[in-house]
Structures are given as C-alpha cells and as structure tokens.
Design a protein around this nucleic acid. Structure first.
Lengths: 263, 263
DNA sequence: ACCTTGTTGTTTTTTTAGCAACAACATTTA
DNA sequence: TAAATGTTGTTGCTAAAAAAACAACAAGGT
C-alpha cells in the first residue's frame, strides 16, 4: 500500500484554475498512481475521506477524466494526463468563445461619453495590455515617435511594434546598447544610461533600470513602462497635458545630456 | 443613467470557469458598457454593492482586465473583451502546462498491478476519450476488426481511426448508408438498420439509433458506443469474455440477418 | 452643512471539506 | 449453516472556507 504522499500545493492551484476542486484533484492524482483502483484504495492513497471519494469520482466522470468499471466493487481508472487536461481545456476554450461572443455584444453598445478622456492618466496592468496600448499609439502616429528604453525592453517587446510606422513619421530612439544591425529607418542613439537612471531612482527601490521605458507620440500621447523585475509590469498612459509635458521635458533633457556626452 | 440590465447566467458561468467570481464578472461587463466609469457608476450599472466594487476592481486589475486612472475620483476602464479573454486564457494555459508536467511524473510511476484487468467492463465518458480508446483498439488489431455503426458515427468519428489498420487485418463494416466512394480496403455491407435498432430499443428511451455503434477487435476486445442524442456520449469497453461473447454473437446475428435480407 | 469616495469591519449565504452512521452485501469463522 | 465480521456505496449532518451583501465612517470636495 502507498502513503498519501504530499501533493505540491501549486499543482492543486493549477488544477483548481482548470475547474477542479481540491478533492477532485487529489482523487485524480491518486488514480494516476494506481490504475484501476477501488474507492477505498483511492481513499487510502489520496487521503480524501472515503465518503467524499464517491461524489468526487462522479464529478470527475462528468468531466471526462475517469472511466468506471462495472464490477463490484466498482473500479476506476484515470484518463492519461495529456488527454485529460486536453478534455478540460476544450471545455474552458468553449466557454471562452461563448463568453467572448456575449461580451462583444455589450462592448459594441459602449457609451464613449467623451468625458474629457484626454485629461486622465491611466494605469495599465500586464505586458500584453501595455503592448496593445503601445501598438495603438504607434499606429496613430502622424509626425513623431520618441522612445527612451532599455535595450532588453526594446528588443523583447517594442521593436516589433515600431515596424508598421510609416516613413513619414520621424522615429527617435535612445537606448543603452544595441545588438544586431542598426536600422537606418530610425534615428538611434546609443549611450550607457545606467548613471542616469540611478540618479533618479535609488538602487533597490523605484524604477529598476532593466525593464523600463518612456514613449511619446506626436508630443501628445505618453506612456511610461514600469517593469518591476520579475513581477507583473504596469504602465502609465496619458494624453493629458500634465503627463505629456513632463515626459516631453524629460526626453528633451535626456537627449541633450546624451548629445553632450557623446558628440 | 442605465439600468442594471440582466446578465444571462450562462455568461456568468462561462466567466466563472475562466476564473472570475460573479462580482468580478458583473463589474467587468458593466465597465464594458460605460468606458471610464467611477466606482459608483459601476455600482449603479452592474448592481454590485458599492463597497464590493472596489475589491472586485482590484482583482480585475491583477488579472489584467481593467486599467485605472489617477484622478479623483478614480476612473476605470475595461480592456476590450478579445484582449481580456486572451489574457485570462494565457494564464489558464500556463496552469495547464505546468499541471500536465507535474501529473506526468505521477503517471509514469503508475502501478500496473495486473488485476485481471481483462475481466472488467469499463464505462468511458466523453467523445474524445472514447475515440482514444477506439484508436488504441484498432492499433492493436492483429487479425480482425468488426464494426457495426450508424453512418453518422462512422463518418464523423470512426473512419479516420480505421485508416492506420494494416492490410493484414480483415476489416468488416456494417452500416445503414454510405456516402462518398466505397473504399475497397474494407468489406462494407450497407443495409437500412432502422428496424433492427428499433426492435431492441423502444423509441424515446434507450439506444438512439443515430449515434451508436459496436466494435470488436480480434474477437477479444469489444466497445459499445452509446450516443444519447445531444448529451455527452459514453461507451462500454471490455476484454472480458462476458461482454466479448455477447458482442460476438450480436454481430454474428446481425451479419446473418443482413446477408439474408440483401443477398 | 452636506454629499461622495474610498475603506474597514461584520453578517449572511454558498460552496467545499470533513465526519458519523447505516443498510446491503460479501467474507470469514464457528 | 448461522453467526460474526468486514467492506461498499449511501445519506445526512457539521465545520471550514470563500463569496456575497450590508453597515458604518473618516477624508475630502462642493
């Protein structure tokens, strides 16, 4: 017989986000280990109270994760993980699709209600959301795009978004290093910016250098990317004169400083 | 101002399976409708108690579904549904991946513990699981494969699985109709089986004709596919002599009956 | 002086987890 | 074979956790 071996709690968390309860997860894991077990055996190996094993198994069967034998006592078997998780994901994806369809209906009725929208400063959470907003900004550019960003951020997230910008728009980039070929399309200025950032943010706190950047489009839309190392990144976005002014001056002064340091 | 319009509960269900609570879902939907609303406005449009709007918004921000403005009062905005749902799915898919990796570790340690496994009759739930099992059966075939199934089932689910069967295996198929070219690879026998099925199952109850089938491999492995129209299909599978004998006789008698009716 | 926002507790409800007891049947023991 | 014992599958009930709903209030704005 086997011990009710400890299950890493982040596995239980992952399975929960796939729609399983703790007991369902434990029972399924138990079944993966024994193959064709009875309810009592599952109880022993999983640590789930025997009486709770039955309802858990019922739900697992509904979710297409276990098969049931017609013997007495009943025996149960787990669908292999790859197939099982695929079964769960299929359901979730169907939910995602129908939810998306339904949500789009609401979204289309949206009241824009021009609330002096341009006066606001927004905080945007999550890399994808920030990239989406940046992409919108760049696509709306008519005259100028100014970028001040660490190379890692540029390389990983920004450069691809800059590509669709038309020739008629002047693109200035200031960064701390550049690997690979230097595109002639952009006006690139490379300079070690470490000192600059450290002057503004005390080490350890505040903006870490690695993944931050400042973006300005047509002197009218500004975005500040703040990547707190490891954690979820966030950004400030605004079309308000306040933040835009600040960013304009900041970029100007950095550009000046860089020009002075490397003629 | 807008009424706290009714939200279809299956939308809330779908969003719940994507990891949102009822309040989170209602707040998000509310935000989709107004664009840049204050907490109080969200409260009014969504029907969520005002005090509960704030924690819900916090969690939505963590989940990358809303942005926040830095005004007083704060204003909030929803990420568009397509992007938002993609953000949710990304997390879930990551969970699925890591869960799969962890589960596979357990799965590999599996005790086979030959429990006279071939004595059991298993119930398998879900189309994908049944197809996986059928595929295994067919791939293990060494001499014969016998199929009795409605055309819709054959066409939709089974035919593809029959392809990889080697030439050396004799494949017999009985079905009620056949559209498209008749493959010479298989010994196909087409006959309207309606009468047969109705004789066995009273109309309304029991096996519906449309999506059912019987499969036998090497006279040793049998699977009975039961498709209760619309609902989740299930199947019986066995290598036990009991069910196999039954299926053998059943198939034999049907084959005989068909042969007699259409010489 | 009054209203609104953002926040903090507290209560109620729902869901999940855990436990106790039992009838039906199967297995052993006398 | 009959009593004793054990196991399985259920049912119902209690406890804990999570979510929902409400009450109250300080801070600031009008």
């Amino acid at each position: 017989m086997k011990a009710p071996r400890d299950i890493p709690s982040d596995l239980l968390e992952s399975l929960r986000s796939l729609g399983l309860t703790k007991y369902e997860a434990l029972v399924y894991i138990g079944l993966l280990r024994v193959a064709g077990a009875t309810a009592t055996e599952i109880h022993e190996i999983s640590g789930v109270p025997r009486a709770s094993v039955y309802p858990a198994l019922d739900r697992l069967a509904q979710k297409e994760l276990v098969s049931v034998s017609h013997t007495t006592p009943k025996r149960f078997d787990a669908i292999p993980p790859a197939q099982g998780i695929e079964n769960l994901m299929r359901r979730i994806e169907m939910d995602a699709e129908s939810a998306l369809a339904a949500l789009d209906v609401f979204y289309r009725e949206k009241d824009v209600e021009y609330r002096g929208n341009q006066e606001l400063v927004w905080t945007i959470y999550g890399e994808e959301n920030i990239k989406a907003r940046l992409s919108d900004m760049f696509q709306s550019a008519e005259r100028s795009v100014e970028v001040l960003a660490s190379w890692s951020l540029l390389q990983g997230n920004v450069l691809a978004l800059l590509k669709p910008i038309p020739q008629s728009v002047q693109v200035d980039i200031i960064t701390d290093s550049w690997r690979g070929e230097r595109p002639s399309r952009f006006r690139v200025s490379v300079h070690p910016l470490g000192a600059l950032y450290e002057a503004h943010a005390p080490p350890g706190r505040g903006l870490r250098y690695e993944n931050s950047g400042v973006f300005l489009v047509d002197d009218a839309k500004a975005l500040v990317w703040m990547g707190s190392a490891g954690e979820q990144p966030s950004a400030l976005y605004s079309e308000s004169s306040g933040l835009v002014q600040f960013v304009r001056r900041y970029l100007a002064s950095v550009a000046e400083w860089v020009a002075a340091a490397s003629p």
